[in-house]
Amino acid sequence: MLLSLIAYISILLFVGISVYKAYKFATMPMHGRMELYPVPKEKGFEHGGSFYEEVSWWSKPHEVSHMREIVEMLKEILFIKKLFENQRPLWWISYALHLGIYMLMAWTMLLVVGVVSELNGITVAATDTGIWGLLVYYVTVATGIVGLALGTLGAGALFLRRVFDNTLKKYTTPQEYVNLLVLFAALFTGILTWGSDLSFHTAREVTANLITFTPFAASGLVTLHVILVGIMLIYIPISKMSHYVGKYFTFHKVLWDNDPNLKGSAIEHQVKKASTFRPSTSWSASHIKPPDAPTL
């Protein structure tokens, strides 16, 4: 029961704190434009161009491709494109960690799917004759093995790189080592816990007990693993490992936000609204008079 509570609470806190952080960033005051080219949605993306390459640009339709923006976003999310292009050696280990996490997220969901399937009378096993049971079984096995291996390897390698790289260690605080160790500990105990049964039948049983609040005799290792995963899930959103939240805003609301303030536009509406704000603090240098409107 206690482990069930830990599982539910940690997932709830992970989602809740992440959403809260996103909400805080989303409701921050409008800022001045700070885009940086190439901007994917722009027609001239290939050469880094913008609507400013047109004469009287404001009198022409602003041709944008949201599809290209989504594609670029997916390249960043799925493959960490910028790191791949600009620092390949680090990409290998960083991507191992990230891909491992993606796989483990899929694995966790597949365990739940497996539990629900079995509750509905579908056997999830290599010996099953139904397509669904086989599919869930094999994808669970694949994502679980790859996820645990890559995630653990990536977290460990990132930690070791920070320890031994003369540059990175100058900038790494003890807390940042802890960040990686928290990930590593949760993932490594995952290998120890589930590694003896790579069909993940045991994992599915434990998942079934956890999500249905069914008391079960958890081993010390299972208990430790669930607690560590719980700590990790709560810790990630309160630490800077919550960059999955920040990254949305840095790209979409800063680097790729080039919507001009045209008459009648939504931006103009926001600018009007922002112009009514009066800051509660002001700068002290003698050349600065109290502002009568915010500086955007």
Partner: peptide, 18 residues
């Protein structure tokens, strides 16, 4: 206010990947 969001993002999220 005019730079708060971009500033906080850069201030908080650097992974120091160099």
């Amino acid at each position: 206010n005019g730079v708060l969001q971009p500033l906080l993002l850069t201030y908080e999220y650097c992974a120091k990947c160099d």
